[in-house]
Design a binder for these strands. Sequence first.
DNA 1: TGTACATCAGTGAACGCGCGTTCACTGATGTAC
DNA 2: TGTACATCAGTGAACGCGCGTTCACTGATGTAC
Lengths: 208, 208
Amino acid sequence: MEETKGQDSRPYHHGDLRRALIGAARQLLEREGAAAMSLRAVAREAGVSPAAPYHHFKDKAELLEAVAEEGWTMLSRLLAEAAASSDPEDRLVPVLIAYVHFARDRPALYRVMYDSARELADLPSSARSGDDTAFAKVRASLNARGAQASDTEVELAMTAAWCAAHGLAEMAGFKQFDHLKAELGGETAFLAAVLRTMGLYRKPPAAA
Amino acid sequence: MEETKGQDSRPYHHGDLRRALIGAARQLLEREGAAAMSLRAVAREAGVSPAAPYHHFKDKAELLEAVAEEGWTMLSRLLAEAAASSDPEDRLVPVLIAYVHFARDRPALYRVMYDSARELADLPSSARSGDDTAFAKVRASLNARGAQASDTEVELAMTAAWCAAHGLAEMAGFKQFDHLKAELGGETAFLAAVLRTMGLYRKPPAAA
DNA sequence: TGTACATCAGTGAACGCGCGTTCACTGATGTAC
DNA sequence: TGTACATCAGTGAACGCGCGTTCACTGATGTAC
């Protein structure tokens, strides 16, 4: 099972090519963008032949799905950390800012994740089940501030928060906002100010 | 200058191929998505040879820029209409909903527009100059409700509104929100409720 | 412990494809005389 | 009004490219005896 890995020669069998391919794809997305992330480029990046990935993924779409899945897992972990290290009563903005930073720093990966979420009736399983997930954290932040809110109100607030995070994540890099960022004293202050302007810094108003 | 157009034969010279190519590209984007919009496909759609576009655009990127530009013009017109047909004191939500509808109904075109805006230090000229533009309308809506606001506050509110519209536009089609839409009585009610939950239905709070 | 063999994860060459772009060309148009 | 010619917007064939995917193969691994 365990092959000996010489320092200078790669073994014929990779060991964990599936994981390596997902990692290579993620790296390519982050480093060179969506257009550069072909199946052949991923195989090249992982140091295997163009045909090797087909032993682990049915086709390119299946690899992309796996990349998205791993992305949601990474994001969930980051949001959980942001939630854990902030005031239980005021977690929403820190959690959303963590979301925005993640997406802003890896736009191509984030877009793959977005595209995968778009197709599903529910969230990706990596972001869905259990407590340690992206959306559980957002929901918990909302519950912390609106104990008396109805299910629909919480759902609406979740939606608003998610949309706001998505919009902000994709726009935060726009040069149009550079002077505003400078004026407000940096990127994070800018993000917080926009979220506050959106009213997401306090209890959602009574239902629509 | 004016060539006679037989009913059954296309003239050798097109007449206004530049505009036709932009239109064909837009149609392809709307009908079949970004992946289907190659330069060759655009030429095919317009009924000319693959080389013809090069008499009007330096390369594919230049055509895409022109498509984006036209998109921003279309959007500005729609927002102007939405603004014109709503209460001057309560224009923000109708204008944002018009934005969301536009983008939601043409996701691939909208993405081309977004990508073109992303690169610019300022907005595309079609959305920038004059009063009859997308962003002038949003700004006017904000001014109508916060007469005493500082420039920075208005700028922040603009940013928040734009981010919210972008986020909502891209997420509105998610299946995850279907039951919420049903519960609230339709798509438009859903959009309005989310925007209200975001706090964009009233004067922005005092500056950050 | 040693050998035969099934399994499986790799290889590398090849396929057909559509792409963006270039090129030498040709047909239509508009203008000068 | 008619003809010669420059201009320009088309054509169609060709280029090289990288892509996703398939195929027959081969080398390594793990297991049964």
